[in-house]
Amino acid sequence: MITGGLPSLDAHADDVYRAAYPRIERKVAAHYARYPQDVERARRIADHLLTHDVVLPNGYRFTVEAFQSLGRVLGSGDGSHQLHHLLEDAFVPTPAGPALADAFQEQVQGLLSYAGHPLYALVHEACYGQDARPTAWSAERVRAEFPRFDAAKTLAGDEPLLFTGETIHPWMFDNDPALRPLRETAGLLAARTDWTPLYDPARLAVNEVPVAAAVYHDDMYVDTAHALTTAAAIRGLRTWVTDEFEHDGVRTGGPGCWTGCSPWRATRSEPGGAVTGALPDRP
């Protein structure tokens, strides 16, 4: 059973992020539709970060780009609520004017720091490397193709601030004390061009192992079109396509998600989570 997404067999990192940024924007729009008061709250925090040098208690340099990256939580089932509660009480009054609250900073550093999992940041883009093209900080480069994510331009107008998602950027290896020792290694990986193929499509096309995959239709982290293309290329793979869960469906859905993902019962379902045409139970 495969849960949480099927990767593309041949997409470059640039393809992954060109598909990702529009999905991220839709998730942010859905969040603001749910909590419209967060539009002004997010803009206020971003404006503060553009005009103040903020360093979190753990030494993390909290820039507006770092603030935007908190949008990664929107890919989880309760992420929108988590982000909303984080933004509610971001400021406290001080004699020098409003300042970011200690409690807010404490929560933010827990969400931003890679101290507990530095290798995740290091190999996140490298996991897409499989030809002579370097990943070359793909998420950062491709983001420039989507100017609505530019915080400075947004704040110069009246548009809602867009958060980003599960993307790794070179500035993280400067801002995060846990990643600074890995800055040089990250640069070497981003420049590497001698990747070997990750997958063997010919072998997957004759697969004989029963396998099922959950494809979360509205997954912010994994592109549905990429996942279904991969599913079609693997012999015998059955998909359960559902919008009932986010990327963390196994954690939040419990037995309901596992039932849908059973290799012997999983078939394609319609948005809404209903499984159609399920196979009989395995004898």
Rank of each mutant, 00 (worst) to 15 (best):
A132V: 05
Y221N: 13
H124S: 12
H117P: 00
L179C: 04
A103R: 12
G256H: 12
S138N: 09
R34T: 14
T259E: 15
A66M: 05
L119R: 14
H12T: 13
T164C: 01
V64L: 04
A178D: 04
D194R: 03
H85I: 07
F245Y: 15
T252K: 14
G116M: 00
T164S: 11
P95T: 01
H117S: 10
V54A: 00
R141P: 06
W195V: 00
D15V: 10
E166C: 00
F163R: 04
V250S: 13
G157P: 11
V123H: 11
G77T: 15
L6F: 12
T230I: 12
L189P: 08
V215Y: 05
W195I: 02
N58E: 04
A231S: 05
E246V: 11
P160K: 06
F104E: 03
T267E: 13
P7F: 09
H217Q: 12
D174P: 04
H247K: 10
C257F: 15
A121T: 05
Y114K: 00
A126M: 06
A205M: 05
L50Y: 02
A202E: 14
L179H: 04
R238M: 00
L122Q: 01
H31N: 11
I168F: 05
P255E: 09
A136C: 05
V123A: 09
G79F: 01
V92F: 02
G277K: 06
S80E: 10
V209A: 07
Q130D: 04
V275Q: 14
